[in-house]
Design a protein around this nucleic acid. Structure first.
Length: 276
DNA sequence: ATCCGATGTCAAT
DNA sequence: TTGACCTCGGATC
């Protein structure tokens, strides 16, 4: 589901399956019907992802489709064109019937003018999956902030594409206390975290899941049952509240930060902790 | 059959 | 800080 890697993966799949091809658009659920009529029968020219947003472009149309999945949107890629099931906001299909995509429950599915696209892109922070972005692009904001790193990581104008799983996991992998203010993080640690996000998220694009557990801590290496915490990927702390830390055995904690459930190990994650 | 949570964001207060 | 929104599936009754 939808952190940045999901959207980059989808953009890639759309390009591979549909770029340069004539497409059919419809809105079985109805709320995208007017736009779908404009898009129908057009050749798709490209799909790009920035942060958690996807933009799809069509020949002869200045506007692009902006899609944001939100918390529970889904975008399923099908071989062929199966019968519609449930609420499908936008069905996009190759005109030859080879491939189709069903978009459900998105926060955003709308046509944006070039000006609106520019405005959208300008409010998304550097994205670890953008090959032109670097740790330096967010460094001044992060290292100058009094806000805590667990809040900064979720702020899409600071870093684009990181969501609740990558937040918890990158903090764990770097032993960082989630409450550490950005200004106390230190440049070395920030850069290491950024580089790690690049690696983890690229891996997520490739696999379609979030795996963050290092080889020495995998179920195979530790003799654990891999199905014990199966959330579609192998993780250290995400959704493991009350269970023992995979590394030290301390009970994993949870609390709401930036309106989402944060998970962390109070023993392993002490770097940056304020004393007293 | 019903409830609840979910890898997100924004507006209103 | 809270509520609203979008939809589905797993847990619970």
């Amino acid at each position: 589901m939808p952190e940045g890697h999901t959207l980059h993966r989808l953009a890639g799949q759309i390009e591979t399956a549909l770029a340069g091809r004539r497409t059919l658009s419809s809105s079985p659920q109805g709320r995208f019907a007017d736009a779908a009529r404009i898009l129908d029968e057009r050749t798709l020219t490209g799909a790009t992802a920035r942060g958690k947003h996807v933009l799809v472009a069509f020949e002869g149309l200045a506007e692009q489709v902006h899609v944001h999945l939100g918390l529970f949107g889904r975008w399923d890629v099908h071989e062929g064109v199966p019968p519609v099931v449930g609420q499908v906001r936008w069905r996009l299909a190759a005109a030859d019937g080879s491939t189709s995509l069903d978009l459900r429950g998105p926060t955003a599915c709308e046509l944006l003018t070039p000006l609106e696209v520019d405005a959208l892109l300008s409010r998304i922070g550097p994205d670890p999956l953008d090959p032109t972005a670097t740790a330096l692009d967010a460094e001044a904001v992060v290292l100058g902030s009094r806000r805590s790193i667990d809040v900064l990581l979720m702020d899409q104008s600071v870093i684009g594409g990181v969501g609740n799983v990558y937040r918890a996991e990158v903090l764990f992998r770097h032993g960082v206390d989630p409450a550490t203010p950005g200004r106390q993080l230190g440049a070395d640690r920030w850069r290491a975290m950024w580089d790690d996000l690049v690696v983890l998220m690229r891996d997520g694009v490739r696999s379609g899941r979030i795996d963050t557990v290092r080889p020495e801590h995998t179920p195979e290496a530790m003799g654990r049952d891999p199905r014990a915490d199966d959330h579609g990927g192998e993780v250290y702390v995400y959704r493991r509240a009350g269970q023992p830390c995979l590394v030290c055995g301390t009970t994993v904690l949870t609390r709401v930060v930036a309106a989402r459930n944060l998970f962390w190990c109070p023993e392993c994650q002490s770097a940056g902790r304020v004393r007293g």
